[in-house]
């Protein structure tokens, strides 16, 4: 994710990170005394990921509309 310049690639990387975190949550919850808390958390994360994907795709689309590219290195106008 950190090496991609393609916005869609980054988006897919973010999804992978989130899914990795989900796997961790579910797996580690097996070894704790917290019951199904890990699974519940992973559900939250899935919902969040869905929302994030919607917003992020919209951003990517608008970015493309404005710059005719999805190279995120071109999105540097907000630097201080």
């Amino acid at each position: 994710m950190a090496t991609k310049r393609n916005a869609i690639g980054i988006l897919m990387g973010v999804e992978l990170v989130l899914n990795g975190a989900n796997v961790n949550l579910v797996a580690f919850s097996h070894y704790t005394t917290l019951g199904i808390d890990g699974q519940i958390y992973s559900l939250f994360v899935i919902v969040l990921a869905a929302a994030e994907a919607a917003v992020a795709l919209a951003i990517a689309l608008n970015f493309y509309n404005n710059h005719l590219t999805i190279d995120v290195d071109r999105a540097n106008r907000l630097k201080g």
Binding site: K4, I10, V72, D73, K79
Partner: peptide
């Protein structure tokens, strides 16, 4: 702090 905000997304991820 301004120096940190480069505007490069991949750097932020890093």
């Amino acid at each position: 702090l301004k120096a940190v905000q480069t505007g490069r997304l991949r750097q932020y991820v890093m």
